[in-house]
Structure formats: structure tokens, C-alpha cells
Design a protein around this nucleic acid. Structure first.
Lengths: 343, 343
DNA sequence: AACCTTGCCGGCAACCTTGCCGGAACATAA
DNA sequence: TTATGTTCCGGCAAGGTTGCCGGCAAGGTT
């Protein structure tokens, strides 16, 4: 039975009850060598009885580390939720607690989050940068304090830190090549914001696929718009009103694929016969709509886990190279929206 | 220009540089009365120059509060993500940091999370209980320490704490009444796990609607299954193989609605003509599938905000009644899946 | 007999901040 | 003059923990 005290027991309480010094109790609890077996047993049994739990604050203050990781992400959509779950999984296992802050894709909010987490004295950061972020001063403060940082998913060359990400270029390539192999001739791209790395990489993959298959790149078929269903809807309208109208669209995210699909339907276009469609992320919704949308699957949970693992390695070995770059691989999930032949 | 020191400046540094005592610096920084204007200015300007930031750990240790809220949730699906965003919003504003832990609907994990958050010395908890949870011993530890707790969304009578939730009964009622008004006669329910409060409340609403419209309750039309697309799929199969087959289904969540829809389609049943369908949560996906699924909308973001607000009130006024119960209202979003008449 | 080892333990300081008390210097009132 | 009040400041302790050092006794080594 634990004694019913409103205040948790401390080392001091144990010392008093056993008439020994604080130091001895501390040593006994941490299995330090120079304590007699007898007193150690006494301390251990009493500490159990009092339900003693070391005070994390005091420990952190003393040892200058909090066993807490600050995680900054732009939002909590499907992809990032999965990644956070992965981070959580590994962090918990390793004895770390995670503080998740959403920037809501806002630059100002990202600065505020960084600030707050620094004040909270987290031991380091795992970051996926907001799409609005173009300046990186606020992250410099982290590295000034010499805290470990790992970036994941939305990485940026402006922040030199170990990173974990998808091979986005490969993803863009396989989506585009698939459309080409299905016989589509004029393939358009709905890309994300121009400064967003993942979007540009996927776009690169698209270009490579065209090149490999000797299709001339048409800049007019590349549209940048916000990572958003509504923007994609209007961007698709624009594409479909062109004279040299595309016969397939590759969208850089599934949200955008949904927007594109809605516009196509409204225009009375049939997928995949009139026009093909491939999205990115393989969110569950792609399999539920009609027609089901082909999409590039990314191993979100694994990316999260890898990021946390890399963080902990970096942590334990502070001098590790900042050039470590872990790259995970996408997989194309083919569904109706792009299956022209076997339809 | 901030001095470039690897270790953040402390009150001690300021005191040394100005040749005054720690106490005086502390007072000056906190606008205490008994400091001369002259020294106050000196302290303030130097503290700015050194980029002084009070050490949260020392403060927390001294004042016995961490300005951190522990949030325990079963997962990070659409609904809970929105709620967490609401909590975050209000907490940030009020100067609190949030630690989010997912139990993954696992009882053991929920215990572990509670344990960890208690060790982290959070100032209190905002909790939505896992569907697996039937014992509440682990939460008692929180209340033993006299920490404030607010429960939200998935509340339980076994935990006496202020709560924020949807009027689930009203939601169940409006969904069912809508189906009745559309002329459906045999309305089945796919309910969640039997010990889950929100599911039972929605079920109550269903029963009330039947009663109001003088329809006899048929227990065979009520099926309990896991909050899950696949289970719902098989449960629907069961419903559709009955002799007295239902002509409409109300599912307690949109995930389940999706599962039900898939099975119906496979059976060749047309919605809404052959069979009606209404879901719950109004996840975006319900508007995207074909036919679009009617659903009961809940104000997730607002529920999150309300929970955090209630927490902070409870915090500031520890003796507040544990009986406060904030209830938010649902709204039926009618789509094709249940629109028999105007179709 | 003088010395060194070994095993065990307590005291002190430090991490950083604040609350409380007392005290010095000066001004005002009786 | 003495008593009382004001203004400003420093010292000390506390919050809980650990690292470092020194100390004491028992036993072993030359």
C-alpha cells in the first residue's frame, strides 16, 4: 500500500525515515557501487512503499536535458498524422516524450512554435517545414544552442541537418511513366507551391519520365497552385480550357487529385477513357471515390519512425555528420483512374 | 547583438556583470516594487543584450507547475486531429504547451501514456478515453495528485470531471428522423463497441426517433461492431442477408458508413432508392464518394477549443464543480445517400 | 608501528529561480 | 534627540537531484 500523501515522496523523505543521508539514498537508487547491500535493500523497499518517483524537473535541471523532443509540423493531415505516429512510437520506446506543434502552414506560427519549444528546453527538434517558410532564421537559433535537429518529409537545403524523406523524384517518375505506358500523350501536372521542395522533386521525376520516353516538355502543361482541393479545381478548369488540352493529369497530392476529379466530372469527362489521373500519397480516400484514383504510396509511418531513430542517433553522437540522408521508396498503386488498357 | 555564448544567460550572469545581487535582478525582471528605477533599467537592458530567457525548469521546480497540459487521445483520425488543433489553439494563447499522446485505442498504452505524462509533471490532463478502456484505475492516480482533468468527446461516467462533448443523442435522433421522413421503414443501426458511450448515446437518439414516430424497435436491426471500415463491411453483409432486410442503415461513424456502402455496392443495391445511408462525423470523404453520404456534422474544432478553455478555467479555480458539462450541437448534412424524395 | 587500501557514508555545492527576512541608508515626524 | 517610516538591496533557504570530495573505521601490507 502506498502511503496516502498529497505530495509525492522525495529522496529526502526516504533519507529521513531511514536516518541516512540524501547522498546515500541517491546512490542506492541508482545502483551506484559504494552502498552496502543492506542499506540498498532498505532504500529500495521503502522507496517502493512510498511509491517514490524521481522528480523529472530536478533531474532535468541538474543534468541539463529534458528527454523531450520538439516536433514541428505544418498540419495534422493524413500523411503527417501517420508520420507523427511513427515518431511517437520510436520516441516512447527510447524514453522520450514528444511535444507536437502545428504551424498550420503559417510562417509566423512556425517561429512562435520554435520559440516556445526552445523555452520548454526540449533536447532537440524533428521538423517538417511549413510551405510558407522562405526564411530560416528561426531555425538558426536552434543550431546556435547546439541542439540536434532532424528534418523530415518537407526538407529544405537551407537547413543543414540529417534528413529523412521519400524519393519524391522516383514517385513523380513512376506516376508519369505509368501514364505514358497507358497511352496518354499529353500529360499535365498540377504542382504545389513553387518553393516547396517535395513538389519540385516530383516535378523533376515527371520531366525525367518525359525525357526517357522522348516526349517534348510543354511548360504550359505545368501549373503551380496551392496544396488544396479548391485551387486544384480551378487549375483543372484552366487546363481543360486550353486549346491543346491534356489527356491526363498527374497531381502532386491526393487533395489536388480530388479537386481535379471533381472538375473533370463536372465537365462530363470520363476517367480513364477521356482523361487519366494519378495522385500522390495514397490517402484512403483515393480508393473510395469513383473512379478510384491511382496514387503514389509513401511509407508515412516508416518515415516517421526513421526520423525519430535518426534523431536519437544524432543525439547520442552529437558529432555525427549532418549529411546523413535517409531516403525511403514510393510505390505506385494503380487504380481505375489511369487504367486505360485493361479497362 | 546578442553575445554569442553556447550556454544561455542566467540571472546570475546579469548579477555578476552589474555587481548586484541575484535577488535584485530577479525583482527587477519581474517588475517587483522595491527596485530603483535606475537599477531596473540597467537590468532590463542588459538582459535584453544577453538575450536572457528565464529557465523554465528552475521556474517549474520552484513554483511546482510546468505550464504543460497532457492530452491523451485514442488516435489521430480526422475528428481528433481537428479537436487537437482546437486544444492547441487555446492552450498556446494561454501560455500552455501541449503534450499529445496517442493510446492507439489500446488500454495498456493509455496507462503507459498516463504514467509518462505524470512523470513529466504536467499541470493537468485533457482526455478522450480509448474504446478499449473499461477500468479507470490509472486515471485515479491523476486525481490522487489533485491535478485538474477535463474529458472530452469520448467521455465516461466512471471519471468524474468536467466534460465537453457533442450532443450525441441529438445527432442519432436527427439522423434517424431524417431517414424516417424520407420514407424508410426498416432502419438498421451499425453501432460501435458496446461499452463506448458516444455510440450508445447515438443509439439512444435512434431509439427516441423511432418511438416518436411510433415505429417498433427491432433489436435484430441493431448491430455492434468495431469502429472500423472492415467490420462494418461484414456487419452490413449480415444485415443484408436477413429475411426482414432493412431499407436504410444509420452508421455511428463515417468509417463504418464507407464500409457499409462498399458492401451495398457489391450487392448491387442502389442508394438511396434501394437502401438509404446516413453516417456520423461529416468527414470530408462523405462528400466525395458516389453517392455522397449524408452525415451528422460535429463541430470538432470548437469542441477542442471548449475543452481547453474549460481546462484552463478549472485550473485557475481548482475548487470548481466537477459537474460542469459543456454540450455542443450537431447538424445534419443531407446528401444523396439518403435523399429518396427529391432524387 | 606506520602506512595504504577498501568499503561505506555524509556534507557541500551546483543546476536556476523566487519568497522571505533583515538591514543599511536616508527622510520625516514627534 | 529619539522614534518611526521608506526605499532599496543582499543573504539565506528552498525546490529535488546528483557529482565530487573528504572522512572514518576496519582490515591488510611493509
Amino acid at each position: 500500500m502506498a502511503n496516502h500523501m498529497d505530495n509525492p515522496a522525495t529522496i529526502k523523505d526516504i533519507a529521513k525515515r531511514l536516518n541516512i543521508s540524501l547522498s546515500t539514498v541517491s546512490r542506492a537508487l541508482r545502483n551506484a557501487p559504494d552502498v552496502s547491500e543492506e542499506t540498498r535493500q532498505a532504500v529500495l523497499s521503502l522507496s517502493q512503499e512510498l511509491n517514490y518517483q524521481p522528480n523529472r524537473l530536478a533531474l532535468s535541471l541538474r543534468q541539463n536535458q529534458t528527454h523531450t523532443i520538439g516536433v514541428i509540423i505544418p498540419n495534422l493531415d493524413y500523411v503527417l498524422s501517420q508520420m507523427v505516429r511513427g515518431i511517437d512510437e520510436v520516441a516512447l520506446e527510447a524514453g522520450y516524450t514528444v511535444m507536437v506543434c502545428q504551424s498550420n502552414e503559417s510562417f509566423g506560427r512556425e517561429i512562435l512554435n520554435t520559440q516556445r519549444l526552445l523555452e520548454s528546453l526540449v533536447d532537440g527538434f524533428i521538423i517538417s517545414v511549413s510551405s510558407e517558410t522562405k526564411s530560416f532564421e528561426h531555425f538558426k537559433k536552434i543550431q546556435d544552442r547546439n541542439l540536434p535537429v532532424v528534418v523530415f518529409d518537407r526538407i529544405t537545403p537551407h537547413l543543414s541537418a540529417p534528413s529523412v524523406r521519400l524519393d519524391n523524384q522516383a514517385g513523380g517518375f513512376m506516376a508519369t511513366e505509368h501514364l505514358i505506358e497507358q497511352g496518354y500523350k499529353k500529360i499535365a501536372v498540377l504542382a504545389g507551391p513553387e518553393n516547396l521542395g517535395i513538389s519540385n522533386s516530383r516535378l523533376e521525376g515527371y520531366k525525367h519520365a518525359l525525357k526517357k520516353h522522348k516526349i517534348k516538355l510543354d511548360q504550359d502543361l505545368i501549373l503551380h497552385c496551392d496544396f488544396n482541393q479548391d485551387y486544384a479545381y480551378y487549375a483543372t478548369l484552366e487546363l481543360l480550357s486550353m486549346k491543346k488540352k491534356p489527356d491526363a493529369i498527374f497531381t502532386i497530392s491526393d487533395r489536388m487529385a480530388i479537386g481535379a476529379m471533381q472538375k473533370k466530372k463536372k465537365k462530363g469527362l470520363q476517367m480513364p477513357t477521356d482523361i487519366g489521373l494519378v495522385g500522390f500519397n495514397n490517402e484512403p480516400v483515393t480508393g473510395l471515390v469513383t473512379p478510384a484514383i491511382s496514387s503514389v504510396e509513401m511509407p508515412c509511418f516508416e518515415i516517421g519512425k526513421a526520423a525519430a531513430k535518426l534523431f536519437i542517433e544524432t543525439m547520442h553522437n552529437k558529432e555525427s555528420a549532418t549529411t546523413i540522408e535517409k531516403i525511403l521508396h514510393p510505390k505506385l498503386i494503380v487504380r481505375e483512374s489511369s487504367l486505360k488498357f485493361s479497362a
